[in-house]
Simulated scan of single mutants.
Amino acid sequence: MRVDEEIVKDLDEIGEREKADRAEVVKRLLDKAIKEWKLDRALEMISRGTWTIRKAADYADLSYYQMLEEMSTHGIDSGSTLEDFR
């Protein structure tokens, strides 16, 4: 994969600060980006009503309670409340 020279410089700077080689830095950053992407996708599917909280949590590799926390943090409604039914 080809990347801009500026990205390579940034990777090397991160590697120096983290005491890791470039490959390890790329692996860590990709891992973090993939986790964030999966969480965003899971939250989107919950908000659309397409997935249950449990399915979204499994997809994002989170516990059910962690997913509830993420939903709260991101302002995602978990569905109807008792007040809605009244």
Rank of each mutant, 00 (worst) to 15 (best):
E6W: 00
V8Y: 10
K9C: 07
K9Q: 11
L11R: 10
E13M: 11
G15E: 04
E16F: 09
R17Q: 14
R17S: 12
R17C: 05
E18K: 10
D21F: 06
R22Y: 08
R22M: 07
R22D: 07
E24N: 10
E24F: 08
V26W: 04
R28G: 00
R28N: 04
R28Y: 01
L29D: 04
L30I: 02
L30A: 10
D31F: 12
A33Y: 09
A33G: 03
K35M: 05
E36C: 01
L39N: 02
D40H: 09
D40C: 03
A42K: 01
L43R: 03
E44M: 03
I46L: 02
S47M: 06
G49M: 06
T50M: 05
T50K: 13
T52P: 00
A56H: 04
A57T: 00
D58W: 05
D58T: 07
E70S: 01
M71F: 02
S72A: 15
S72M: 10
H74N: 15
G75Q: 02
D77L: 08
S78C: 14
S78T: 15
G79H: 07
S80I: 15
S80F: 13
S80T: 12
S80W: 12
L82S: 15
L82A: 14
E83H: 06
E83A: 12
D84V: 02
D84W: 06
